Simulated assay, not measured.
Amino acid sequence: MKSPVGLRVLALSLAAIAMVAESAAASPPDRRCTCRNRDGTKYELGQIACIRVGGVSYMARCEMNLNVTTWKKVRDGCPTAHVNSSTVPAL
């Protein structure tokens, strides 16, 4: 049979490991982590941008995947604004 002291040390060790793992998982991402667009513009984690790759445009969010920042596609296309010249008042 195992000694009570050995079991107590094992239980305390496992509890300490669990607490360290929990605090590491709950820590917020580093504010220095950013994504970059092709033009060099920096975006913080959670920000959304229009990404253009190979003639295709889409909306993407700056996210963390493992220990690397990456763009995650949110939807196809990017918002655009069109001005109808007949509704613009003359100056």
Results as ranks from 00 to 15, higher is better:
Thr34Phe: 12
Thr34Arg: 11
Thr34Ile: 13
Thr34Gln: 14
Cys35Phe: 03
Cys35Asp: 02
Arg36Tyr: 15
Arg36Glu: 12
Arg36Pro: 12
Asn37Ser: 14
Asn37Ile: 13
Asn37Gly: 15
Asn37Glu: 14
Arg38Thr: 11
Arg38Cys: 11
Arg38Ile: 11
Arg38Val: 14
Asp39Cys: 05
Asp39Gln: 05
Gly40Val: 02
Gly40Met: 02
Thr41Gln: 06
Thr41Cys: 04
Thr41His: 07
Lys42Ala: 15
Lys42Val: 13
Tyr43Gln: 07
Gly46Pro: 01
Gly46Met: 04
Gly46Trp: 02
Gly46Asp: 03
Gln47Phe: 06
Gln47His: 07
Ile48Glu: 10
Ile48Met: 09
Ile48Gly: 05
Ile48Phe: 06
Ala49Gln: 04
Ala49Cys: 04
Cys50Ser: 03
Cys50Phe: 02
Ile51Val: 07
Ile51Cys: 03
Ile51Arg: 06
Ile51Trp: 05
Arg52Ile: 08
Arg52Ser: 11
Arg52Val: 12
Arg52Tyr: 12
Arg52Pro: 07
Val53Leu: 13
Val53Cys: 06
Gly54Ser: 09
Gly54Asp: 10
Gly54Asn: 07
Gly55Pro: 00
Gly55Gln: 01
Val56Ser: 05
Val56Ile: 09
Val56Gln: 06
Ser57Gly: 07
Ser57Asn: 09
Tyr58Asn: 03
Tyr58Phe: 06
Tyr58Met: 04
Met59Gln: 13
Ala60Pro: 03
Ala60Asp: 01
Ala60Ser: 03
Arg61Ile: 06
Arg61Pro: 05
Arg61Lys: 08
Cys62Val: 01
Cys62Met: 00
Cys62His: 00
Cys62Ser: 02
Glu63Cys: 12
Met64Gly: 10
Met64Tyr: 08
Met64Ile: 13
Met64Arg: 12
Met64His: 10
Asn65Cys: 11
Asn65Thr: 10
Asn65His: 09
Leu66Gln: 14
Leu66Lys: 12
Leu66Gly: 12
Leu66Ser: 14
Asn67Gln: 15
Asn67His: 11
Asn67Leu: 11
Asn67Tyr: 13
Asn67Pro: 12
Asn67Val: 12
Asn67Ala: 14
Asn67Lys: 14
Val68Cys: 11
Thr69Ala: 00
Thr69Ile: 03
Thr70Tyr: 15
Thr70Asp: 11
Thr70Pro: 14
Thr70Val: 13
Thr70Phe: 10
Trp71Gly: 03
Trp71Pro: 03
Trp71Phe: 04
Lys73Trp: 08
Lys73Tyr: 11
Lys73Met: 08
Val74Asp: 02
Val74Glu: 03
Arg75Cys: 06
Arg75Ala: 08
Gly77Val: 02
Gly77Gln: 01
Gly77Tyr: 01
Gly77Ser: 00
Cys78Tyr: 06
Cys78Leu: 04
Cys78His: 07
Cys78Lys: 06
Pro79Met: 02
Pro79Trp: 01
Pro79Ile: 01
Pro79Tyr: 03
Ala81Pro: 07
Ala81Gln: 10
His82Val: 11
His82Lys: 14
Val83Leu: 10
Val83His: 07
Ser85Thr: 08
Ser85Gly: 08
Ser85Pro: 10
Ser85Cys: 09
Ser85Ile: 09
Ser85Arg: 09
Ser86Ile: 01
Ser86Gly: 05
Ser86Trp: 02
Thr87Asn: 13
Thr87Leu: 11
Val88Gly: 03
Val88Ile: 11
Pro89Asn: 00
Pro89Gly: 00
Pro89Ile: 00
Pro89Asp: 00
Pro89His: 00
Pro89Trp: 00
Ala90Phe: 14
Ala90Val: 15
Ala90Asn: 13
Leu91Glu: 12
Leu91Ala: 15
